[in-house]
Design a protein around this nucleic acid. Structure first.
Lengths: 123, 123
DNA sequence: CGCTCGCATTCGCTAAAGCGAATATGATTT
DNA sequence: AAATCATATTCGCTTTAGCGAATGCGAGCG
């Protein structure tokens, strides 16, 4: 229970959860959108993984992360409400817009060239 | 938002919130039931106060604390779900039973003799 | 098969959290 | 007014969290 809330008690991790939305997302997009270094992202994703809030999937050399529903019903309920909460935060909104912009750019940033785009944006 | 979750990311603070339930409670009861020193309780109550989750009320030399509904609707929703969650935790359950036992004892512990009992137990 | 690419982990370091012991504060009692 | 009581705060310390820089590692590519 404390682990669960500790995982949510950090802005970077909240931003990661927000960016995943309901799809999985490639790590390089997190790095690009949050505009920070890669080890930082990776560490926070590991934190979320240990807390059981997120699951990785390998696709060639790329790693994708997606949000996973907690097994405990109360945790699940709280978590889904938190994700709805994120939707209304201004910074979170900006992050999501930035993700779209980055994906759809005719000349995408070097960091994400060739990376598998999120399914929700290619469909 | 991080402040909110940080406040919940500590077992002692969760136990305090749990003990308040829906009534206000005198500080000395927290000390007695958690079986720890007084400054520790006081510091954690201050933390909850700063996070806006709790409100103090003075009654003579006694201080009472009660849970307060967060102004943000999302926070309020999450918070109430968290409090329901606490209800089912074994340690939290034991704490509440211990509170009742301590209040109703014919010879209460010295620490709480003369302290105003929680309204829910005197009614 | 060596090289690069994407990501994970390790390494020092700094900052913050939590703790018990001691002390301060503010209200009551004597 | 002094002593006492309930609570808050401060102090010094230890532990933990978060950071950037550097390094490790598995998967694809030349």
């Amino acid at each position: 229970m404390e682990l669960f809330f500790s995982a949510l008690a950090d802005r970077t991790r909240l931003r990661l959860i927000n960016l995943m939305g309901s799809d999985e997302l490639c790590v390089c997009f997190f790095v690009e959108v949050l505009g920070t270094n890669q080890p930082k992202i990776s560490r926070h994703l590991a934190y979320l993984r240990n807390a059981g809030l997120v699951e990785p999937r390998r696709e060639g050399k790329w790693m994708h992360y997606k949000v996973v529903e907690p097994s405990d019903p109360h945790a699940a309920h709280v978590f889904s409400e938190v994700r709805a909460w994120l939707t209304e935060d201004p910074e979170m909104r900006r992050d999501r817009e930035r993700l779209i912009k980055v994906c759809c750019a005719p000349q995408p940033p070097v960091l994400i060239q060739g990376a598998p785009k999120p399914a929700s944006l290619t469909a």
